[in-house]
Design a protein around this nucleic acid. Structure first.
Lengths: 322, 322
DNA sequence: TAAACTCGAGTTT
DNA sequence: GAAACTCGAGTTT
């Protein structure tokens, strides 16, 4: 970049994701999706067992235990169910049974289960999107920790499950998903990184939050709340986009761009400058130009393509030495 | 608003979508989804018919006709298939059959079809998202045409299928989905509106594009290309977000916000000012404040909540009289 | 029924 | 295998 923060990014094109990386990404999604599918197939099978006991479709409404599954078969997602009252769902189910099950005659169970599977497929898709995002976070964690180890910085990580700080030497790659935060020492400097933290200054949840000190106890304490409410403690904030789909690349960069602008505006109003970063897995030509230009103007402090190992190592090393 | 563009919006809260509207939106999605599901159930049924003829799962690979369906059952979306080469899909299918079909024994056909249904459910979800967006465009069209009729402005609409301009008097509500463009006369002023047009100045596709004259022939002509390349012809550009999900509201507003910023930046570089507008169906409290503030500062020229009939009528009337 | 995060399933131009 | 549009299926804090 203009000011050489990342030596592997010297022009916008360096940021672009390759066709090969996209392919690898989609393949890895397919593998994971097949595995996750088992859960939903199990639900369908269990649902069929219950439904098989009924003689007439309309009787299905009477069993409150399966109301949610029936709604799903009728095209209402788990998310949407939360907005409906019992009367709404009952009316909808009655119409659904009339229109799609009774007309199916003897094969109404197949009709119902097949529709249930369709809705569960959409659910599986939603779940996969969260998984892909999680995997991106894990990859970043692993690379940050590698940078800490190479530099021999003392570090600890906060474990989501046990809710305690664990010494860096005990970290293993398969703990990556448990890492909520990392703190380290770089000489006199001490640093604290949190993932997915709601930052009071911005009033939004932010993927990557780096504090310029670690003089604070764990979350859920009043002290922590005060710590994160003080803009002086912030050093850098960033957006991480792990999706591999080129069709979503610009869409999600636009989202990230507004999120980053909100961060700058919120800290700017307090006359506080913070670094902002963007790390994405799907970077297309046009947005690469925008990202690069923002880095040159130093509106954006640093960036990297998550699929390019050298860019990623480089930004992680920069990050831990900030 | 501060400058009274929309008399039904006097404070940010006026923009917020109600719980009731959200509920109606989700219910209408469920109804439509059940209808659209038929197509995917049909595919599954046809797929089963073919698969039933095979004795052993591995033989399925040999039939190229069903490769795509097999891939879908294996978790590869239509979108992802485009990135894979035959060798990739063959390897993946071989592993898939080994791991999930052969292990299913005699019930391997059910296993395959159920997995196919899961993937088709995700496909149906994708299709629904496009439909919801289309319905929003139709609603806007209907309200714009109502405004034109109330004011007795002469207008014509460009029909997507027949690719001709049709006199306004022949417009019927059930043609709404065919309207690609509308042109009208307001006294001496003539106006041309296009939906989903790639604007060369911005190099992006924009939902709502209003030209300050209609001195141009149809699309696909060189003349049209020159017309849309001249920034002087532009009067207003807007983003329309038809989604009802509150969870997606801020996400999509962030996207729209960057899109609108790109429009202003691109025209601004040419010292050309254009009006910008935002119309959304899902508007939550925090984003309502941002939208309202942008309207007050006149960064955003006008806005409306698509679910609030009076706001919508008002912005359409403003739009046709611009 | 808090708010806003995850991202790709479609689609069009 | 162009590029960027549609939006809600999940999820977390």
């Amino acid at each position: 970049m203009g000011h050489n923060l990342n030596k592997y990014i010297n022009k916008p094109e360096d940021l672009e994701t390759t066709y090969e990386e996209t392919k690898i990404g989609f393949l890895s999604i397919a593998l994971r999706k097949s595995k996750e599918a088992n859960y939903y197939l199990g639900l369908a099978s269990a649902f069929r067992t219950i439904v098989d006991d009924y003689e007439a479709p309309l009787d299905l409404i009477k069993n409150d235990d399966i109301t949610i599954s029936m709604c799903q078969a009728a095209g209402i997602s788990t998310k949407a169910i939360g907005y409906l009252e019992p009367k709404d769902t009952k009316d909808l189910l009655t119409d659904f049974i009339q229109e799609y099950l009774i007309t199916a005659g003897d094969s109404y169970v197949d009709q119902l289960i097949n529709r249930f599977l369709l809705s569960q497929g959409d659910a599986l898709g939603g779940r996969m999107r969260n998984i892909v995002g999680g995997v991106a976070g894990e990859k970043l964690t692993q690379n940050i920790i590698s940078a800490l180890r190479i530099r021999n910085f003392d570090f600890e990580y906060f474990d989501k499950h046990s809710k305690i700080w664990i010494k860096g030497e005990y970290f293993q790659e398969d703990n990556s998903n448990l890492v909520k935060a990392i703190k380290w020492k770089n000489g006199d400097k001490s640093r604290l990184l949190y993932y997915d933290l709601t930052v009071p200054v911005v009033k939004k949840n932010i993927d990557i939050v780096l504090f310029n000190n670690s003089n604070v106890n764990n979350k859920k304490t009043k002290e922590f709340k005060e710590f994160i409410s003080d803009h002086h403690n912030y050093l850098a904030l960033g957006e991480l986009k792990g999706g591999i789909d080129p069709a979503g690349a610009d869409e999600h960069w636009k989202t990230a761009n507004t999120a980053l602008t909100r961060i700058r505006d919120a800290f700017g109003k307090l006359n506080s400058e913070v670094f902002t970063i963007f790390i994405g897995a799907a970077i297309e030509a046009a947005m690469a130009k925008e990202i690069y230009a923002q880095c040159e103007s130093q509106e954006l402090t640093n960036c990297a393509n998550l699929t390019k190992q050298r860019q990623l190592s480089e930004i992680c090393d920069w990050f831990v030495t900030l």
